[in-house]
């Protein structure tokens, strides 16, 4: 058993402790050596941009805890929001358009969930192909422009990404509230307990009466819905959404957060504080690299290498259980 309240000694030993220390070190180093880093403006940008990543990572974390993975989140995000904007421009009220977008996101999640739960397609496969399908669907039928601006005349929409509550950006508040909700969901509800049971040992969970298939469908529906919400915040803060984000390495950033934070890809363990921790570290890293003016391609390389090491450490700390891992478990 891991100790519930990590003291200073256990902090260094556990993976999350190491990540926490690394985040702290990176923060201090950037603050000391990069003059632009430790300014109020930058920190605000950091927290705000990190919040979107964090929200997406929350959705991913839920799926990963249940021994799944959802690499279609970015596709769902850009397509559902872009479609909503395109609909709004073609005459629908923005509210209705957003509802349609949300419905679309939910539907994709449910379909993916069915493919995984009933079709027994490996999750990473289902979501990888789903990403390609969703993006192709969007680009072919829903909208033609890659860049979809927020429809004009809807001032309230800008508040989501740019407004403040008691001086704190709405984005950050949203992230904090979602963290709280997710924490309650995972630690205080039957859904959460069953999720951990499924991740720990799917076969045992099935036998003990966990409604396995509905649970799987629910996970992907939630992650798709979370992706839509994150897309709204992203679009609101930037006043537009770029569909090409699907082709970027954004999805790896999300995975990076989850894996670095210490939620094992094996499923069955990991808490919301791991997501927060991962988000902090990745956010600081990305922000620092951007300020240092490191080219985008090199940033990708750095992220890739860091993620690789994170996975290696993850597999050393949480070795795969040969008893419950199945043939064809990729």
């Amino acid at each position: 058993m891991r100790s519930l309240a990590p003291g200073p000694a256990s902090l260094v030993k556990s993976q999350e402790g190491i990540v926490f220390l690394l985040a702290l070190l990176a923060f201090l180093a950037f603050a000391l050596f990069l003059p632009a880093f430790f300014s109020a403006g930058n920190l605000l940008t950091l927290v705000r941009s990190v919040s979107i990543l964090g929200i997406l990572a929350l959705g991913m974390a839920l799926v990963v805890v249940g021994r799944g993975i959802d690499v279609s989140m970015v596709a769902t995000m850009v397509v559902s929001v872009s479609w909503a904007f395109a609909l709004s421009r073609s005459g629908y009220p923005l509210e209705v358009a957003l509802l349609i977008g949300a419905g679309f996101a939910l539907l994709t999640g449910i379909i993916i969930g069915f493919a995984v739960a009933v079709g027994e397609v490996p999750p990473i496969f289902a979501t990888l192909a789903a990403g390609s399908i969703i993006y192709g669907l969007g680009r072919t039928f829903f909208f033609t422009l890659e860049m979809q601006n927020v429809p004009p005349g809807e001032d309230w929409f800008a508040l989501i990404g740019q407004g403040r509550i008691l001086g704190i950006p709405v984005t950050v508040v949203a992230f904090a509230m979602l963290c709280f909700v997710a924490h309650i969901l995972l630690s205080r509800t039957r859904f959460g307990w069953q999720l951990y049971a499924m991740g720990n040992n799917p076969e045992a969970a099935k036998i003990t009466g966990v409604p396995f298939r509905p649970m799987v469908v629910a996970q992907y529906a939630i992650s798709a819905f979370v992706a839509f919400g994150a897309g709204l915040i992203l679009a609101s803060s930037a006043s537009a959404i770029n569909a090409r984000l699907y082709n970027s390495t954004f999805i790896y950033d999300i995975l990076l957060v989850v894996v670095l934070g210490g939620i094992g890809l094996n499923g069955g363990h990991g808490k919301i504080r791991n997501v927060i921790l991962g988000t902090m570290f990745v956010g600081i890293l990305l922000n620092g690299m951007t300020i240092m003016n490191i080219p985008f391609t090199v940033q990708n390389l750095v992220k890739g290498v860091v993620l690789l090491f994170a996975i290696i450490i993850d597999s050393l700390v949480n070795p795969r259980d040969e008893q419950t891992s199945q043939q064809g478990d990729l």
Binding site: I69, V71, P122, I124, Y252, L255, L265, G304, L307, L308, I311, I312, S315, P319, R320, L330
Partner: peptide
Amino acid sequence: RLRAFITTLV
């Protein structure tokens, strides 16, 4: 002994 899918993805 890493997971093949995620490793080769990275």
